[in-house]
Nucleic acid binder design. Sequence first.
DNA 1: GCTATTATTTCAAACGTTTGAAATATAGTT
DNA 2: AACTATATTTCAAACGTTTGAAATAATAGC
Lengths: 337, 337
Amino acid sequence: MQNTPVTLKYLAEKLKMSISTVSKALNNYPTINEFTKKRVQDLATELHFTPNKSAINLKQGRSKIIGIILPNLLDHFFTRSVYGLEQFASKHGYNVIISQSHDSLEKEIQSANMLLQTRVDGLIVAISKHTQDFSHFNEFEKMGTPVVYYTRNPSFNLSCHKVLCNTFQGAYQATKFLIERGHQNIAYLGGPKMISFTHDRFNGYIHALKDHGIPFSAELVAYTDFDKESTITAIKNLFSSEDKIPTALVAFKEPILFDAMKYLRSVNHPNFQQLECIGFGNTSFISYFNSPPVASIEENPESVGENAMKLLLQLLNRNIETNDYQKILVDCKLVVH
Amino acid sequence: MQNTPVTLKYLAEKLKMSISTVSKALNNYPTINEFTKKRVQDLATELHFTPNKSAINLKQGRSKIIGIILPNLLDHFFTRSVYGLEQFASKHGYNVIISQSHDSLEKEIQSANMLLQTRVDGLIVAISKHTQDFSHFNEFEKMGTPVVYYTRNPSFNLSCHKVLCNTFQGAYQATKFLIERGHQNIAYLGGPKMISFTHDRFNGYIHALKDHGIPFSAELVAYTDFDKESTITAIKNLFSSEDKIPTALVAFKEPILFDAMKYLRSVNHPNFQQLECIGFGNTSFISYFNSPPVASIEENPESVGENAMKLLLQLLNRNIETNDYQKILVDCKLVVH
DNA sequence: GCTATTATTTCAAACGTTTGAAATATAGTT
DNA sequence: AACTATATTTCAAACGTTTGAAATAATAGC
């Protein structure tokens, strides 16, 4: 036996007043008598009245929901960014729906459609690895729903709002730090070339070298595709050179660094114990290592998330014009262990 | 200049037919002429018609959304469980809204209210550490919205549906494994006593000892509250005994184990290198350790999530009666490294 | 060419809100 | 007592769908 649902109508009948009075009382309209308000609000809490969001959304044409599409929730970067996103959103009366694309374009499109149907007020996206075409996000713009891209940078010439890690600066700092510790042979282990910020990071490394008068050596650079095998191949290459043996290493991402370390340790590489490394990420597990790395490049994911949400809400409130495309860079911070 | 929204009404006008025909055509009603259906569907895709979920929810009285409340998304157990939850849900046409309680009762109540307003069709909850009182979930039951508790077990006498890790079996297996490797002095490092399954794990440990004729020794048991200091205190206690020096250790959670290992390493404890450890969790980072642990207790979070969602959908479809309270245990698996 | 079937389309109410305009009640002035 | 000004409440339409019942159109049988 289902209870009759507690709606405005039901409250109105109980109180022998009109639905609109009840509605306005609950929404604290100034034209409603204080005594009436109290009567209504008391009954509402007594009967646990819970406004139906669907009805409100339908009527108001806005959902107070922000959609988030991101590759996955296993990567701590994203979960930490969600923290920032959610916190900022809820402080401003918005809820958040998170949808994982699992780095598949197809799932990303599905997610986009789902969020379109939900009529989210805005969208924040970290695109999947394979996203080259952005037409599935066009509908949002057409409906006047602002979209902010974060972390994963859509192809450079697409006019859009973006919030990114200042990954150039991160790599620069890390390299500089290692130089200042006296290293000359600093290797760079880069990520997949298809990821937008791969180049920025590499540039940070290069510029740091140049600014400190250290010649660039191609033998000290290798790339991995994230998988273990290619990381090992890359690390083999880096350490196979005759004259230039790295004494320090800047890595694209800490898990890559871990794989690399594990390999060097397993082959008992003579330089392993002295090697000083820095990776992007600042994983919580890093402190459990007894050998390198010496520092981490903290990308401040919470701040990235918060900035993305902040920008989105500014677009929603029309504090920023839709076509006044913004690019926000969030600085990295070198954390020395 | 906002476009006029593409609604059923708009399509109907364009096609010079009634709204109901359009609606039924899109929903593939058998009474609608095939040719008409095609005309409607073609225009709908051409104009990117996207049904308004709020309107549908309102009309149908169901949202096809399942609410998830969990402590946080930083713990890999939960993110992995979300994977299972989401996957199973979307296979059955449901979407998922995740809300983090950050282990605060207040936020948990807020989340519950939000999901109540959203009129989720069902709720899956891993309660916060501090939740003793469950009245904020009563409203769901009252509205006929089924609730499934998972992982974090609400106080035993509350009649409810639950899906739990078979944490007893996990601890039992781990202890047995260590016994079979020849250990006699197996220590147990437990978690906070307020967490429901602390006792189950301890019992698994105890039973394995008993079944293998190894006497229980209170000196080999200590508890931590998750924070570093209390872990270190606990580990100091375990290794301070005169006669019973642990040669193996079962830990409540891997991060605790990491803290413990780090401490033992830092003090250069003589038994550190030989110590064999097993913790609950199977963190991906575990493989980067060069010393213990030797195995992990894999809790199969994806499966826990999937089972919770499965149970919930069965309740929704009335394949299981609401008051026929279910308790599902998902077995752990010992993963040897 | 009429009726009986059957196929197809349309009507109209409902879901639970919000909100400006209109109606009514109350108090204040003369 | 009549009128005005103000305070408070109600009316009624709208948001975008769904859906059973009613209406209409098309086809077949004679």
